[in-house]
């Protein structure tokens, strides 16, 4: 697949890195000239995926989280968020609205929010091996190019 630009990030699963990750992706996405609403959607989706890696993938340890962003053809932004944590046995179940293993602190709406804010969401996971979340969103350029 042809790409126009990319960014790779890696950081430990400290909760303070969630805000950092979403801001960095926001800055990278800005080259596609998104609207405020589109930018907010992207940051929210990143926040959900990174928070999941922090709280679910590495519940009692600090682990590695990586983010790869690519700008693909037709102004499509691809964001890949990966961890090497506990993984999930049943991804389909995990993606159901309100499904959570996080108790009262969590609402089980993370994947639902990622789905509704992005054009596509793919989740690959294996228990003990980790989780990869791939999301894409097309950002139609609003700037008039002459």
């Amino acid at each position: 697949m042809k790409f126009e630009n990319y960014l790779k990030l890696e950081f430990p699963s400290k909760s303070s890195n969630e805000a950092l990750a979403r801001s960095m992706v926001g800055v990278f996405a800005s080259q596609l000239d998104p609207s405020m609403e589109e930018l907010g959607d992207l940051k929210t989706a990143v926040s959900e995926a990174v928070t999941n890696a922090i709280v679910h993938a590495y519940p009692n340890t600090l682990g590695r989280i990586s983010i790869r962003c690519r700008i693909l053809e037709e102004n499509r932004l691809e964001i890949v968020i990966r961890d090497w944590g506990v993984g999930m046995a049943d991804v389909e179940q995990a993606r159901q609205p309100l499904f959570t293993t996080g108790g009262e602190e969590r609402s089980g709406m993370g994947f639902t929010i990622m789905e509704s804010f992005m054009d596509s969401l793919t989740v690959k996971s294996r228990p003990g091996a980790g989780t990869t979340v791939v999301m894409k969103r097309r950002l139609p350029r609003r700037r008039v190019e002459r």
């Binding site: 959900e48 009262e104 602190e105 709406m109």
Partner: peptide
């Protein structure tokens, strides 16, 4: 200025 599903859990609570 920014809220994600953590805020949803709180409001639901």
């Amino acid at each position: 200025s920014f809220m994600d599903s953590s805020g949803i859990a709180l409001i639901l609570r």
